[in-house]
């Protein structure tokens, strides 16, 4: 009765909304069907470290591991793991299984509750200024910083994952039921930068 593996069968995932990749000055890519998982509880930090994972040292920070796994710390007791290239499915299944038998660690349904978009381009901060009240300019929002905020009036987690001298790169995670709406809102906001 307790075995309800949320991370199973990635090939059957379907994002259910129209999200045609935009490839211009600001690129917008839907990665909703990529692997991700969340954990919450008093022992989560210890639990993840015990699995050899580098976790951020403070909340609202993200760590991009050498193997591409991104670990977000949303609070002292809540962490999300993003596997955008679907390279770490086995790890996630193992973590899910272990969490089921670990006290003070609750697995979250991040895989299915959140849509996930990647937004690239140096105009990202200006574009986000049209949909978000938080200053996401690099001076105020460095790489590795997370903003838990409202984007186009939808609760969202925005992560700056810009790598070195590469163009600005944000990941946005938001309620999946509003994904179509949010995609269109960002598409509309990005339009003026695509000329």
């Amino acid at each position: 009765m307790a075995s309800f593996m949320i991370s199973a069968e990635p090939q059957l995932r379907h994002n259910s909304f129209n999200a045609k990749t935009i490839d211009a000055a600001i690129t917008l890519v839907d990665v909703t069907c990529s692997n991700r998982i969340g954990f919450r509880g008093q022992q989560v930090a210890t639990f993840l470290q015990a699995q050899g994972l580098d976790i951020p040292q403070q909340p609202n920070r993200a760590v991009v591991m050498n193997n591409g796994l991104i670990i977000l710390s949303l609070s002292q007791t809540e962490f999300w793991l993003l596997d955008i290239d679907n390279q770490h499915r086995q790890l996630m299944i193992e973590l899910e299984t272990l969490a089921d038998i670990t006290k003070q660690v609750t697995r979250l349904y991040t895989q299915h509750s959140q849509a996930m978009f990647i937004i690239n381009g140096d105009d990202c901060p200006q574009m986000f200024a049209k949909v978000c009240a938080v200053n996401l300019h690099p001076d105020a929002f460095e790489s590795g910083v997370i903003a838990q905020t409202s984007v186009a009036r939808v609760s969202s987690v925005v992560v700056n994952v810009t790598h070195n001298e590469q163009p600005t790169r944000f990941i946005i995670l938001s309620d999946i039921s509003s994904a179509q709406y949010l995609w269109q809102a960002i598409e509309d906001a990005a339009a003026e930068f695509q000329l």
């Binding site: 259910s16 129209n18 186009a152 039921s177 509003s178 809102a185």
Partner: peptide
């Protein structure tokens, strides 16, 4: 450009293709 979030169920476009007439329920 006021933001009015709309929430869709995963089957929204299936309903649309079945000629569903939609009604709001919250968002």
């Amino acid at each position: 450009r006021i933001f009015n979030p709309v929430r869709h169920t995963p089957m929204h476009y299936r309903h649309q293709s079945l000629d569903a007439q939609f009604m709001p329920a919250g968002a």
